[in-house]
Structures are given as structure tokens and as C-alpha cells.
Design a protein around this nucleic acid. Structure first.
Lengths: 177, 177
DNA sequence: GTCTATACGGAGATAGAC
DNA sequence: GTCTATCTCCGTATAGAC
């Protein structure tokens, strides 16, 4: 999506209309303001994310560690886009924070979706007391990798870090009483 | 700086002129274009960063581990700004990447400054072969924390992660042959 | 050097024909 | 529903007075 590729503020109606192949005027039949488009984009991302997370859960066959590994591997799977545009969630929340935009909360809710889902997996693994902390830690690690690879475009680095996160996860599992 | 607080694209000449207390017209006596201002801002950040890194080195008294700890602690020291605006380097490079801006390289050079400095410290610690990898890892960790705390504004999380990075550093030192 | 006035383009948004 | 034409505002940038 264009908001992801060029940022929300910098994407104009002309850009959008051009991409969707309708005229600028017609746009206002579907959305009254640009903010309304943003809200719809975030809403749609929330839905897709929900579905993706649920899909990982189901594909893991009740193995939370595998579900978490699916999360870790988005870095590898999406590395081409991340190199060019960064993480869609991280860069959007950062931009909206700077714009002091109304939809900031909704964008953060996207992050919270990942956070709660990861915490749920860690809890299912038996990490009752620190599930949320582990979730935040892993989310931060993957955000950090996304930021760095966006700057340095270093594939080897992504591979190393994804592996390191896997090792970290294994170590957390071994710690379980 | 305004570019940090509101982003480069979203900051107008009127905003800047207002902040510096001179008229918009007078601005063009000092800079010919907005991009020239950006270049000057980055240039100035490079200088400040160089000085800061050198200062850490000197304050550490030839103890690279302490120098690295100074780096880790910027997260704690600047957490108020980071909560509101994110990391100045990370958010700038991310924005310029999306704008496909000319100055993208210069902004990344800012990141590279930290990277090389950290690698130098790790090398001084005796990590000859993986100094750069360790530098990138630590840089990514701190970027990740900055992104998360910008979204969630969670002080306890920063404290935990800063401590965890300290522990990680100690473990790397113990590994040295 | 610093100001005011203004040109010029592009942005979001509206009106109204079809 | 989709279009073109148009409005208004704001952004960068320039001209020229002082």
C-alpha cells in the first residue's frame, strides 16, 4: 500500500487515485477525508493481522513455540519490503506519533495485537508471570532488526538475528520449571 | 529540533522561521532550499555525535565496556524525548527512506558512525572477528526499544531492556578467550 | 542582512454535469 | 457512481524595498 511505501503524510490524493485508477473527485464518494482513508487502511490491517496470527496459531498445531517462530520469520519472508520501506507497523506508528495524529491510538492497537498474541503464546508455553515482558522483548528485537536492515540493507545481518532470536526462544523454553 | 519532533516533510518553513524568530523571506539568505537545511541539520548531528562518542571514550578511561554502557544508557537518559518522538536517527532514516530522499545516505552515515564506534569498542575488548556483528546487534536492540517505547510509553520496559543489554554485554566479555 | 509582498504549484476538498 | 472543473489553503521559493 502507498501509505506504507511513501508514508501517510507524503502520499497525496493524486497518488492514490492514480494507483486505484479512479479520478480524484470520485474519491470523495467513497471517503470524506484523507483521515477516513487512513482509518480504513488501519482497520483493514488489523483484520489481516488478526487473520495472520490466527493462521499461525492453527498451523502450529497447538505448539506455541512454532507459532512464535512464525512471527520471527516474517523478518526473513518480508525482507525485500522491509529493506525498502521498513516495518509497516513500526514506521506508521512512528510517523503518526510525530504528526500527533488522531489515529495514533489505532495504529498502536496494531502493535498491541502482536504484543497480546505473543504474550498468549508465551503463557501457553508456561511463562505465566513474564509472558508480556517476553512478548515486548521479542517485538522490540524484530523492530530493531527492521530499522537496521532498512538503513543498511544487510541480508546476512537479518539471517544472524533471526537465528539468534530462535536460540533465544529455545533458551526461554528450557528455563521453564 | 523541529525535524526531529515533527518529521522533515511535515515541518514547514513557517514553523522553522517561527521557531528561529526570523521571517520566512530572510531564511533564503541563509539556505537556498529546504534540502540544504536538512543537509546542515544532519551535518550538525554528525558533529555532535562524533563529539559525544569521543566523550564517552574519554570518560571511560580506556575501558571499552564502560564506553559501550554509556551508549546503552542513552535510552534511559533520553527516554522522555524517545517516548514522544522516537529515536532521532532511526526515525529520520526511516522517513528519508520512504521519501526516497537524496540525503538518505547522509542520514545513514549517522547510523554508521554509531556502528563503527561500537565495533571499535568491541574490537578493543578482544572481539576481533565479530565486532561488527555485535555492534549491529546492540544498535538493533536499542532501536527496537526506542520504537516500542514510542508506541507504548512503558518506562518499566526500558529499564528491563537496558538491564538486559548490560547483562548481554557482560556475557560477551566473559566469552572472550 | 532583514523585511514584506507575491509568484507558483500542489495539496485536500467541493460542485455539479453526466 | 464517476467524471471534470474549480475553490481554497498552504507549502516552497523569489523579488525587491529598506
Amino acid at each position: 500500500m502507498l501509505f506504507y511505501q511513501h508514508g501517510f503524510d507524503h502520499t497525496s490524493f493524486a497518488d492514490i487515485a492514480d494507483a486505484v485508477q479512479i479520478s480524484r473527485g470520485n474519491f470523495y464518494y467513497h471517503f470524506r477525508t484523507k483521515d477516513e482513508i487512513l482509518a480504513a487502511v488501519i482497520e483493514s490491517r488489523v483484520e489481516n493481522t488478526r487473520a495472520m496470527l490466527q493462521g499461525w496459531e492453527e498451523a502450529s498445531g497447538d505448539n506455541p513455540a512454532d507459532a512464535i517462530r512464525s512471527f520471527i520469520h516474517i523478518l526473513t519472508d518480508n525482507r525485500a519490503d522491509i529493506k525498502r520501506y521498513g516495518c509497516p507497523v513500526g514506521t506508521l506508528t512512528a510517523e503518526l506519533a510525530k504528526l500527533n495524529h488522531n489515529a495514533r491510538g489505532e495504529a498502536n492497537a496494531l502493535f498491541a495485537l502482536f504484543r497480546r498474541w505473543l504474550a498468549k503464546q508465551f503463557r501457553a508455553l508456561g511463562r505465566k508471570s513474564d509472558a508480556d515482558a517476553l512478548a515486548l522483548h521479542l517485538l522490540a528485537r524484530s523492530q530493531g532488526v527492521a530499522t537496521m536492515v532498512n538503513a543498511f540493507r544487510n541480508d546476512a545481518f537479518v539471517r544472524r538475528e533471526v537465528e539468534a532470536m530462535g536460540d533465544w526462544l529455545d533458551a526461554r523454553i528450557l528455563e521453564i520449571p
